[in-house]
């Protein structure tokens, strides 16, 4: 099959937009994993939960509030609640009062968040079984503008929704970066990783910072749920098995705890995926390539590729503001 230049160009643009979405989906995970050493296996389930709730409520009420922007905010707020729930059920009992997190603690939180995620997964089916209005495969009919697409040249069409999703994704990723790297709260969060005992000495409760980190991570994760929904048009709980592994690939590739690093890794992964699909027209090959990249990075450079990005960007932004480091 001959691939046209237009196909490749379209794959490139779609890849950037998809990559932006993937980046935004992963930034919450890199925060909780990088800072707290909690490998949150419920991450994908939380995103799907947000998307499922948004879609179901949209089908029920069809109100403007639940168009993407409203939904992103609503789900972010719900994320605060879910974050607190996740922390007190699956994180606090294991590492709430622990200063040094060992491999054993890490595996324990991994299993606990895994259980938490399974609960969320079952919740959709339970809700569908016990209520008449909850659907396990809901869809939405959001589309923006008239016509709902943009023409580039004569053959490339990109849906406006996707452009919007790409832009909002960047905003979300950057907002988290700003929150963690450019505020006092962010400094405290980073301090927990380095020395939580010293933090307690200067009068900051490490438990509270851990709680806050979990909440921020989950809130940002859940706010990307409606974006995923807007991108795909429909969602099922099984989509977790596509979202979560990609998020893990991206976080590992981007370097643990590096938010902009994850975002850039997301862009690269999205580009790779879309370009492979555009050239081969085979989704299975694109996924094989994606996960081979993961195995390669793990084999060659398990510390990730873009770990330095956050520090560079933060200091550049500070310098521009004339703040001494």
């Amino acid at each position: 099959m001959v691939v046209t230049a237009a196909e490749l160009a379209r794959g490139f643009i779609e890849g950037l937009l998809y990559g932006s979405l993937l980046g935004a989906i992963s930034v919450g995970l890199t925060l909780i994993w990088g800072v707290m050493k909690v490998v949150n296996l419920a991450h994908g389930h939380l995103i799907v939960l947000a998307a499922m709730f948004t879609a179901n409520f949209y089908v029920l009420y069809k109100v403007a509030l639940l168009n993407p922007m409203g939904a992103i905010i609503t789900m972010g707020i719900l994320g605060v609640v879910m974050g607190a729930l996740l922390y007190y059920t699956s994180v606090h009992p294991i590492i709430g009062h622990v200063d040094v997190i060992t491999l054993k603690h890490e595996m324990a939180t991994l299993m606990a968040t895994f259980g938490f995620g399974l609960t969320l997964f079952g919740l959709h089916y339970a809700l569908a079984a016990w209520t008449s209005w909850y659907s396990t495969e809901p869809g939405i009919s959001w589309s923006f503008g008239h016509p709902p697409y943009v023409m580039i040249g004569s053959t490339i069409t990109i849906v406006k929704t996707k452009i919007l999703v790409g832009i909002i994704s960047f905003v979300i990723a950057f907002a988290l970066f700003a929150l963690v790297r450019l505020t006092n709260l962010g400094l405290m969060i980073q301090a927990v990783t380095q020395d939580s005992r010293a933090l307690a000495l200067v009068g900051i409760d490490p438990v509270r910072i851990k709680l806050l980190t979990t909440i921020i991570s989950v809130a940002f994760a859940m706010s990307t749920g409606p974006l995923y929904l807007a991108w795909a048009g429909s969602v099922t709980p099984l989509k977790e098995s596509i979202i979560a592994p990609l998020a893990f690939v991206i976080v590992v590739a981007g370097g643990l705890g590096s938010i902009m690093g994850s975002y850039v890794a997301g862009l690269i992964l999205g580009l790779t995926y879309e370009l492979v699909v555009a050239t081969t027209q085979e989704v299975s090959i694109a996924l094989v390539v994606t996960f081979l990249i993961l195995l390669l990075i793990l084999a060659l450079k398990p510390t990730g590729l873009f770990g330095y990005l956050d520090d560079r960007l933060a200091s550049a932004l500070r310098r521009r503001r004339g703040v001494a480091e």
Partner: peptide, 13 residues
Amino acid sequence: EAGTSDFSTFISA
């Protein structure tokens, strides 16, 4: 593939 959610490549082609 089963589970695909983005069809834009196929549609464009």
